[in-house]
């Protein structure tokens, strides 16, 4: 554990709390892509299958349980509790175009041909593109509630912080995880456009609006 990874994990936690807070206070999941949230459930469940086989630390185990539980809770909020506020007609990104290629990549690039390793690899690739339905929705509507942009910023910050973590681990432990690093760089790259608008508009007190 180093400071970058810890701050990244805190940022990830913060993003989830911001999202739940947004849905509960506005009593609406407007502007949130159900598809992205559903992919996150798939990501956490497939990645944390080792919850039953590998013990790393109390921190590690609690975070895994929290991520699985909170992502399922968000799906419940969207599909049951605040269902009428979820508009599938603007959530049109085709998730199957993500899952297919990620499954192929997982079969080619993994750390061992076992069910858990291939699913772990799949979860890494899937996480790297999970935000696309959400960003696509943002692009389509051209605007977002400020709280939603804070959610995305925290999620993007989590990914960005994992990069110095990997650099640190390379020099301090000689540890390199090429699958995580490659997918992580791609994932962080997807946020660059969003971050540009977030820093130049939202943090200057303006509304998140994309040019027409």
């Amino acid at each position: 554990m180093n400071i970058f990874r810890f701050l990244g994990d805190l940022s990830h936690l913060a993003s989830i709390f911001i999202l739940i807070h947004k849905i509960q206070t506005t009593r609406s999941c407007r502007g949130i892509s159900f598809k992205t949230q559903a992919v996150y459930v798939a990501v956490f469940v497939t990645r944390y299958l080792d919850l039953f086989t590998t013990f790393v630390s109390v921190y590690n185990t609690s975070m895994k349980i929290f991520f699985i539980a909170s992502s399922c809770y968000i799906l419940y909020l969207m599909k049951v509790r605040f269902r009428p506020t979820n508009d599938p007609s603007i959530d049109t990104f085709r998730v199957e175009y993500l899952v297919g290629p990620c499954a192929v990549l997982a079969l080619i690039f993994n750390y061992g041909y076992s069910v858990t390793e291939v699913l772990w690899s799949l979860s890494i690739f899937l996480e790297s593109v999970a935000i696309l339905p959400q960003l696509f929705m943002l692009q389509r509507t051209g605007e977002a509630e400020t709280i939603t942009t804070h959610y995305l910023a925290a999620l993007g910050a989590y990914r960005a912080l994992y990069i110095p973590n990997w650099i640190y681990r390379y020099f301090s432990e000689g540890y390199v995880d090429p699958i995580s690093v490659t997918a992580g760089l791609v994932q962080t790259g997807l946020y660059l456009d969003f971050f540009y608008v977030y820093f130049t508009k939202v943090l200057q007190g303006q509304k998140f609006e994309l040019p027409a």
């Binding site: 895994k64 991520f67 995580s180």
Partner: peptide, 10 residues
């Protein structure tokens, strides 16, 4: 390989 010691990152 990283998986020798399990995946310790989240």
């Amino acid at each position: 390989l990283p998986s020798d010691s399990g995946h310790d990152e989240l």
